[in-house]
Amino acid sequence: MDNYDFTKQPSLLIQGAMDTETAYLIEHLEEHVCITIGNWKFHTGFLGTKREAVIISKTFQGIVNAAAATSLALAYFKPWAVINQGIGGGHDKKFHRGDIVLGEKVIPMGAVAYAFSKEGAGIDAKGFSPLPVEIFCRETGKTKKVTEYPCDIRLLQVAEQVETKYHTGRGVIGSGDEWNSQIDRIALLRERYHTVVEDMESAATAQLCLSYGVPFLGVRILSNSIVNAEKFDEAVGIDGQKFILSLVEQMREYM
Protein backbone atom coordinates (compact mmCIF):
# COMPACT_ATOMS: atom_id res chain seq x y z
CA MET A 1 0.00 0.00 0.00
CA ASP A 2 2.85 2.30 -0.89
CA ASN A 3 0.41 4.71 -2.52
CA TYR A 4 -1.82 5.07 0.55
CA ASP A 5 -2.33 8.77 1.28
CA PHE A 6 -2.85 9.29 5.01
CA THR A 7 -3.89 12.90 4.41
CA LYS A 8 -6.81 11.90 2.17
CA GLN A 9 -7.71 8.28 2.91
CA PRO A 10 -9.30 7.03 6.17
CA SER A 11 -6.96 6.57 9.11
CA LEU A 12 -7.27 6.17 12.87
CA LEU A 13 -5.26 8.49 15.12
CA ILE A 14 -3.92 6.82 18.28
CA GLN A 15 -2.25 9.06 20.84
CA GLY A 16 -0.04 8.55 23.88
CA ALA A 17 2.02 11.06 25.81
CA MET A 18 5.20 9.05 26.42
CA ASP A 19 7.34 6.28 24.95
CA THR A 20 5.85 3.82 27.42
CA GLU A 21 2.45 4.62 25.87
CA THR A 22 3.43 4.57 22.18
CA ALA A 23 6.67 2.63 21.49
CA TYR A 24 5.04 -0.83 21.39
CA LEU A 25 2.46 0.29 18.83
CA ILE A 26 5.08 2.03 16.70
CA GLU A 27 7.21 -1.13 16.70
CA HIS A 28 4.27 -3.09 15.28
CA LEU A 29 3.58 -0.72 12.40
CA GLU A 30 4.00 -2.10 8.90
CA GLU A 31 5.20 0.26 6.17
CA HIS A 32 6.15 2.68 8.93
CA VAL A 33 6.78 6.27 7.85
CA CYS A 34 7.56 9.07 10.33
CA ILE A 35 6.26 12.54 9.47
CA THR A 36 7.46 15.56 11.47
CA ILE A 37 5.19 18.57 11.84
CA GLY A 38 6.53 21.32 14.06
CA ASN A 39 7.84 19.71 17.26
CA TRP A 40 5.78 16.54 16.89
CA LYS A 41 6.34 13.27 15.06
CA PHE A 42 3.49 11.26 13.57
CA HIS A 43 4.09 7.60 12.73
CA THR A 44 1.93 6.32 9.88
CA GLY A 45 1.50 2.70 8.90
CA PHE A 46 -0.72 -0.35 9.22
CA LEU A 47 -1.57 -2.40 12.30
CA GLY A 48 -2.82 -5.93 12.73
CA THR A 49 -3.73 -8.74 10.39
CA LYS A 50 -6.39 -6.54 8.78
CA ARG A 51 -3.84 -3.79 8.21
CA GLU A 52 -5.78 -0.95 9.73
CA ALA A 53 -4.39 2.41 8.59
CA VAL A 54 -3.27 4.27 11.70
CA ILE A 55 -1.27 7.26 12.85
CA ILE A 56 0.58 6.93 16.15
CA SER A 57 1.24 10.26 17.85
CA LYS A 58 3.44 10.83 20.91
CA THR A 59 1.96 14.07 22.16
CA PHE A 60 4.28 14.65 25.17
CA GLN A 61 2.80 15.22 28.60
CA GLY A 62 0.22 17.81 29.53
CA ILE A 63 -2.85 19.56 28.20
CA VAL A 64 -1.07 22.13 25.98
CA ASN A 65 1.14 19.53 24.30
CA ALA A 66 -1.84 17.26 23.69
CA ALA A 67 -3.86 20.14 22.26
CA ALA A 68 -1.08 21.17 19.88
CA ALA A 69 -0.43 17.62 18.66
CA THR A 70 -4.15 16.99 18.19
CA SER A 71 -4.71 20.23 16.29
CA LEU A 72 -1.88 19.42 13.90
CA ALA A 73 -3.13 15.87 13.34
CA LEU A 74 -6.75 16.89 12.76
CA ALA A 75 -5.74 19.56 10.26
CA TYR A 76 -3.09 17.55 8.42
CA PHE A 77 -4.38 13.96 8.44
CA LYS A 78 -8.14 14.40 9.02
CA PRO A 79 -8.50 11.04 10.85
CA TRP A 80 -11.91 9.36 10.95
CA ALA A 81 -11.57 8.79 14.72
CA VAL A 82 -9.15 9.47 17.59
CA ILE A 83 -8.18 7.26 20.53
CA ASN A 84 -6.27 8.95 23.33
CA GLN A 85 -4.78 6.22 25.51
CA GLY A 86 -2.09 5.67 28.10
CA ILE A 87 -1.56 5.39 31.83
CA GLY A 88 -3.54 7.12 34.56
CA GLY A 89 -4.02 7.34 38.30
CA GLY A 90 -6.95 5.51 39.86
CA HIS A 91 -9.76 7.23 41.78
CA ASP A 92 -12.16 4.31 42.26
CA LYS A 93 -11.33 1.42 44.61
CA LYS A 94 -13.02 -0.98 42.18
CA PHE A 95 -10.17 -0.46 39.72
CA HIS A 96 -6.63 -1.60 40.49
CA ARG A 97 -3.23 -1.07 38.90
CA GLY A 98 -3.26 -2.77 35.51
CA ASP A 99 -7.03 -2.43 35.03
CA ILE A 100 -8.31 -0.57 31.98
CA VAL A 101 -10.90 2.20 32.01
CA LEU A 102 -12.94 2.77 28.87
CA GLY A 103 -14.06 6.37 28.88
CA GLU A 104 -17.73 7.27 28.95
CA LYS A 105 -16.79 10.95 29.04
CA VAL A 106 -13.89 13.21 29.95
CA ILE A 107 -14.13 15.92 32.60
CA PRO A 108 -11.72 18.91 32.40
CA MET A 109 -10.81 18.97 36.11
CA GLY A 110 -8.98 22.29 35.85
CA ALA A 111 -11.98 24.19 34.46
CA VAL A 112 -13.52 25.43 37.71
CA ALA A 113 -15.04 28.61 39.11
CA TYR A 114 -14.47 29.38 42.79
CA ALA A 115 -17.10 31.15 44.88
CA PHE A 116 -16.28 34.62 46.21
CA SER A 117 -14.93 34.95 49.73
CA LYS A 118 -13.73 37.99 51.64
CA GLU A 119 -10.09 38.78 52.34
CA GLY A 120 -8.89 36.80 55.31
CA ALA A 121 -11.73 34.27 55.05
CA GLY A 122 -9.33 31.51 54.14
CA ILE A 123 -9.27 29.16 51.16
CA ASP A 124 -12.21 26.85 50.63
CA ALA A 125 -10.94 23.96 48.49
CA LYS A 126 -14.50 22.68 48.09
CA GLY A 127 -16.03 26.00 47.06
CA PHE A 128 -15.97 25.49 43.31
CA SER A 129 -18.26 24.54 40.49
CA PRO A 130 -17.55 23.39 36.91
CA LEU A 131 -16.60 26.28 34.63
CA PRO A 132 -18.12 25.88 31.14
CA VAL A 133 -15.50 25.91 28.38
CA GLU A 134 -16.32 27.66 25.12
CA ILE A 135 -15.67 25.60 21.99
CA PHE A 136 -16.29 26.24 18.31
CA CYS A 137 -18.57 23.62 16.81
CA ARG A 138 -17.66 23.04 13.18
CA GLU A 139 -20.96 21.31 12.48
CA THR A 140 -23.06 24.35 13.41
CA GLY A 141 -20.50 27.06 12.73
CA LYS A 142 -21.17 28.51 16.17
CA THR A 143 -19.62 28.42 19.61
CA LYS A 144 -21.12 26.68 22.60
CA LYS A 145 -20.15 26.14 26.22
CA VAL A 146 -19.70 22.69 27.69
CA THR A 147 -18.56 21.23 31.01
CA GLU A 148 -17.76 17.70 29.80
CA TYR A 149 -16.69 15.89 26.66
CA PRO A 150 -18.55 12.69 25.74
CA CYS A 151 -16.76 9.72 24.27
CA ASP A 152 -18.17 8.18 21.12
CA ILE A 153 -20.70 5.54 22.12
CA ARG A 154 -19.96 3.30 19.13
CA LEU A 155 -16.21 3.29 19.78
CA LEU A 156 -16.93 2.58 23.44
CA GLN A 157 -19.15 -0.35 22.55
CA VAL A 158 -16.51 -1.75 20.21
CA ALA A 159 -13.88 -1.47 22.96
CA GLU A 160 -16.16 -3.42 25.27
CA GLN A 161 -16.25 -6.26 22.75
CA VAL A 162 -12.48 -6.80 22.89
CA GLU A 163 -11.58 -10.21 24.28
CA THR A 164 -8.77 -9.54 26.71
CA LYS A 165 -7.14 -10.84 29.86
CA TYR A 166 -7.25 -7.37 31.39
CA HIS A 167 -10.05 -6.22 33.66
CA THR A 168 -11.93 -3.47 31.84
CA GLY A 169 -14.87 -1.26 32.69
CA ARG A 170 -16.58 1.97 31.77
CA GLY A 171 -15.91 5.13 33.71
CA VAL A 172 -15.44 8.89 33.77
CA ILE A 173 -11.93 10.17 33.03
CA GLY A 174 -10.83 13.30 34.87
CA SER A 175 -8.18 15.25 32.99
CA GLY A 176 -5.97 18.24 33.69
CA ASP A 177 -2.46 19.37 34.48
CA GLU A 178 -2.79 17.80 37.91
CA TRP A 179 -1.32 14.86 39.84
CA ASN A 180 -3.66 14.22 42.75
CA SER A 181 -2.31 12.27 45.71
CA GLN A 182 -4.56 13.60 48.50
CA ILE A 183 -7.23 11.04 49.39
CA ASP A 184 -9.75 13.72 50.33
CA ARG A 185 -9.17 15.62 47.08
CA ILE A 186 -9.73 12.43 45.06
CA ALA A 187 -12.88 11.71 47.08
CA LEU A 188 -14.13 15.21 46.28
CA LEU A 189 -13.50 14.72 42.55
CA ARG A 190 -15.39 11.45 42.67
CA GLU A 191 -18.25 13.13 44.51
CA ARG A 192 -18.48 16.02 42.03
CA TYR A 193 -17.60 14.27 38.78
CA HIS A 194 -17.74 10.48 39.46
CA THR A 195 -14.17 10.14 38.16
CA VAL A 196 -12.65 6.68 37.96
CA VAL A 197 -9.20 7.65 36.70
CA GLU A 198 -7.21 10.82 35.99
CA ASP A 199 -4.74 11.81 33.28
CA MET A 200 -3.05 14.91 31.90
CA GLU A 201 -3.98 14.83 28.21
CA SER A 202 -7.36 13.46 27.21
CA ALA A 203 -9.41 16.59 27.96
CA ALA A 204 -7.51 18.52 25.29
CA THR A 205 -8.02 15.85 22.65
CA ALA A 206 -11.65 15.27 23.59
CA GLN A 207 -12.42 19.00 23.42
CA LEU A 208 -10.90 19.37 19.96
CA CYS A 209 -12.60 16.24 18.64
CA LEU A 210 -15.94 17.56 19.89
CA SER A 211 -15.22 20.85 18.14
CA TYR A 212 -14.24 19.15 14.87
CA GLY A 213 -17.01 16.54 15.03
CA VAL A 214 -14.53 13.64 15.05
CA PRO A 215 -15.38 10.48 17.05
CA PHE A 216 -13.24 10.22 20.19
CA LEU A 217 -12.50 7.56 22.78
CA GLY A 218 -10.38 7.85 25.92
CA VAL A 219 -8.74 4.71 27.30
CA ARG A 220 -6.60 4.57 30.45
CA ILE A 221 -4.75 1.72 32.12
CA LEU A 222 -4.10 2.35 35.81
CA SER A 223 -0.42 2.89 36.58
CA ASN A 224 -1.17 3.50 40.25
CA SER A 225 -4.05 3.74 42.68
CA ILE A 226 -3.59 5.98 45.70
CA VAL A 227 -6.97 4.88 47.03
CA ASN A 228 -5.81 1.24 46.98
CA ALA A 229 -2.25 2.02 48.17
CA GLU A 230 -0.85 0.73 44.86
CA LYS A 231 2.36 2.47 43.77
CA PHE A 232 3.20 3.95 40.39
CA ASP A 233 4.43 1.63 37.63
CA GLU A 234 4.53 3.14 34.15
CA ALA A 235 5.46 -0.23 32.62
CA VAL A 236 1.76 -1.10 32.47
CA GLY A 237 1.65 1.26 29.50
CA ILE A 238 2.79 -1.66 27.34
CA ASP A 239 -0.24 -3.67 28.44
CA GLY A 240 -2.42 -0.70 27.56
CA GLN A 241 -0.98 -0.67 24.05
CA LYS A 242 -1.56 -4.41 23.69
CA PHE A 243 -5.21 -3.80 24.48
CA ILE A 244 -5.34 -1.04 21.86
CA LEU A 245 -3.77 -3.38 19.32
CA SER A 246 -6.51 -5.91 20.05
CA LEU A 247 -9.11 -3.15 19.68
CA VAL A 248 -7.70 -2.12 16.32
CA GLU A 249 -7.63 -5.78 15.22
CA GLN A 250 -11.37 -6.19 15.50
CA MET A 251 -12.57 -2.60 15.07
CA ARG A 252 -13.82 -2.93 11.51
CA GLU A 253 -16.00 -5.91 12.48
CA TYR A 254 -18.15 -3.68 14.65
CA MET A 255 -17.95 -0.19 13.12
Score class of each variant (00 low, 15 high):
Lys142Pro: 02
Glu119Trp: 02
Glu30Ser: 06
Val82Ile: 15
Ala111Cys: 12
Asn84Arg: 12
Val133Ser: 03
Ala206Ser: 11
Glu148Arg: 08
Ala68Lys: 00
Ala187Asn: 15
Ser175Gly: 10
Leu72Phe: 13
Thr168Gln: 06
Lys58Trp: 07
Arg252Phe: 14
Leu245Tyr: 15
Lys165Cys: 02
Arg97Cys: 05
Phe95Met: 08
Cys34Gly: 02
Leu74Asp: 05
Gly171Phe: 08
Glu249Trp: 12
Lys50Met: 15
Phe6Gln: 04
Lys142Gly: 05
Glu21His: 01
Lys58Val: 12
Thr22Ala: 06
Ser175Asn: 06
Leu188Ala: 14
Leu245Thr: 10
Val146Ile: 15
Trp40Pro: 00
Gln241Val: 05
Ile63Trp: 06
Gly89Ala: 04
Ala206Asn: 02
Tyr149Leu: 09
Lys231Val: 11
Gly120Asp: 07
Tyr76Arg: 12
Ala159Tyr: 08
Lys93Val: 14
Val54Asn: 10
Val133Met: 10
Val219Ala: 11
Lys41Pro: 08
Asp177Gln: 02
Gly171Asp: 01
Val248Lys: 11
Thr49Ile: 13
Phe46Gln: 15
Arg138Thr: 05
Arg154Ser: 11
Pro150Ala: 11
Ile244Leu: 13
Ser71Gln: 07
His43Ala: 10
Asn3Ser: 15
Leu29Pro: 02
Tyr149Lys: 05
Ser202Gly: 09
Tyr114Phe: 15
Phe60Trp: 02
Trp80Ser: 06
Ala113Ser: 15
Pro130Lys: 03
Pro79Cys: 08
Glu234His: 15
Leu155Ala: 12
Thr44Glu: 10
Ile35Met: 05
Ala206Pro: 05
Ile83Asp: 02
Asp233Gly: 08
Val82Thr: 09
Ala115Gly: 03
Pro79Lys: 13
Glu104Val: 13
Tyr193Gln: 06
Thr20Gln: 00
Gly62Pro: 07
Gln207His: 03
Ser223Tyr: 00
Ala125His: 01
Val219Asp: 03
Val196Phe: 01
Leu208Ser: 04
Thr205Lys: 02
Gly122Met: 04
Leu247Thr: 02
Leu74Thr: 12
Lys94Gly: 14
Gln157Leu: 10
Ala68His: 06
Thr164Asn: 10
Arg252Glu: 15
Ala17Ser: 14
Ile107Tyr: 06
Val33Tyr: 13
Gly169Met: 05
Arg97Ala: 04
Ala23Val: 11
Glu234Cys: 09
Asn228Gly: 13
Val82Asn: 10
Ile56His: 10
Leu13Lys: 01
Asp5Met: 04
Ala125Gln: 07
Leu155Tyr: 12
